[in-house]
Write a protein that binds this DNA or RNA. Sequence first.
DNA 1: ACTGAAGTTTCATTATGCGAAACTCAGTTT
DNA 2: AAACTGAGTTTCGCATAATGAAACTTCAGT
Lengths: 264, 264
Amino acid sequence: MAEIGTGTVGKALDVLDLIAAQGHPVRFAELQRLSPLPKATLYRLVQTLVINGMVTQDEESGAYALGMRLVRLAHAAWRQASLAPVARPFLDTLSQESGLTVHLAQMDYGHVLYVDRRDAQDPNAMFTDAGKVAPAYCTGVGKAMLAYLEPEELDQVLGMQSFHRFTPTTLASETVLRQSLDRIRERGFAIDREEYQTGVTCAAVPILSAEGRVLGAVSISGAGSGTETRTLEAWVPRLRICAEDIAMEASHWAFPAEQSAGNV
Amino acid sequence: MAEIGTGTVGKALDVLDLIAAQGHPVRFAELQRLSPLPKATLYRLVQTLVINGMVTQDEESGAYALGMRLVRLAHAAWRQASLAPVARPFLDTLSQESGLTVHLAQMDYGHVLYVDRRDAQDPNAMFTDAGKVAPAYCTGVGKAMLAYLEPEELDQVLGMQSFHRFTPTTLASETVLRQSLDRIRERGFAIDREEYQTGVTCAAVPILSAEGRVLGAVSISGAGSGTETRTLEAWVPRLRICAEDIAMEASHWAFPAEQSAGNV
DNA sequence: ACTGAAGTTTCATTATGCGAAACTCAGTTT
DNA sequence: AAACTGAGTTTCGCATAATGAAACTTCAGT
């Protein structure tokens, strides 16, 4: 997780990540403890980030937290780079038809990044989830995507996994995982039987482009704890249609051509 | 809007903003047209951003779009720097009690940044809204915040406004706006009568810290187009309670002390 | 084969970022 | 009240790393 950071910009972004990782406002001393950078350099970098609005500094405590400019940027990122806006209507109907929770995820540096979530039962699910990351090897969406990666890509991504055993059912080694991926390819969908969080079971299928590239994955999971694997599996054909719909729609949106109207 | 950009990092972030502003993947030539930076410099900066995962480059078209790393970062930003996680339960109950749409916003470089939204009618409202920006001078939340800024802050922020007349009722000059702010201070809440978007009326109150600093604002607006101003005003006392609750809760969370458990 | 536009690389120049060390300023300790 | 500490901030000579004009490479269109 601790990359090197090329050039000034790379270092600055590493510092950003560092602040983000703490989950609470950080004082300079703490940053210094966590960062390999020399004091003065770190100091200047943080100041630069503050000046540029990526980080805010609390007036009295002097502690640093991420700035709102990020939220604004991310909104744009989510709209222009993720499948979410395209997928939204399909997720909606699926969650309504099935009464299940639907997640949309994409691959991000070897991890699963959730970009959207629809929940028929609980309308309150929302932003909280978009942006969350989880390991690829022990989530339904993660395995669904891994199973359809190009061999070289897969090798690369597997190299990034740390294989921690979260629950008794977690697939905690590359060998076991690879077998599991073969199975997924045969059946066309992945099941997560409480491999990451106890009580959470889900079924997931990949979203593949016409050329077979992995765009993302969708999963369904029961609201309550007692959702049967069978129930989920019964919905898989419908889930697969959803994934295909999304892929189809995404291909149309692939390159929205040139046009530079400047509406904000 | 077109700032200068201090140092390498500043320039890189400006480029990021530029890509974000387009709303669609951008080819290099287009960026070059939009940016004052010389070709080679721009090129290197964009590459740096790509290397660092802030921007992705489409394999075939070569076009640049914002990267997922931003979404991940923003999730953290939203959790640690915005009022949203703290305010959420209060917004929930308010929207349920009233059946109205509730928005939570904060100030961001002279603009209004929406950080959360709750909607009793339409559970589908979500991420789409968090991260959206709007002008301060013609939105309920914006005016509510402006009215309670320190004089110097206000001057500074007003300097950033561009006063475009969006609808017939938009307050399109500093003088008119300042009068309106006096009125808001007297009554304790702001009304937006279709000043930004036709059909949208809302009532907003500021969220003030114990020392009187502006933390953000909450607003209520009707779901349909026909919501009467009266109906909204009737809910203002309740809205004010909501704002106070949030301020109170926020003060407790102000500085969650030192503790460096590394849970992700 | 010629032209032009988009994208990429080179390379001498120097501005920029670097970081050890020194300094400030609280709050503690002796 | 002098000495000690630890967080935060500034200095400054040095060398790295960013700069940008210009040259080069594709590639599509003619």
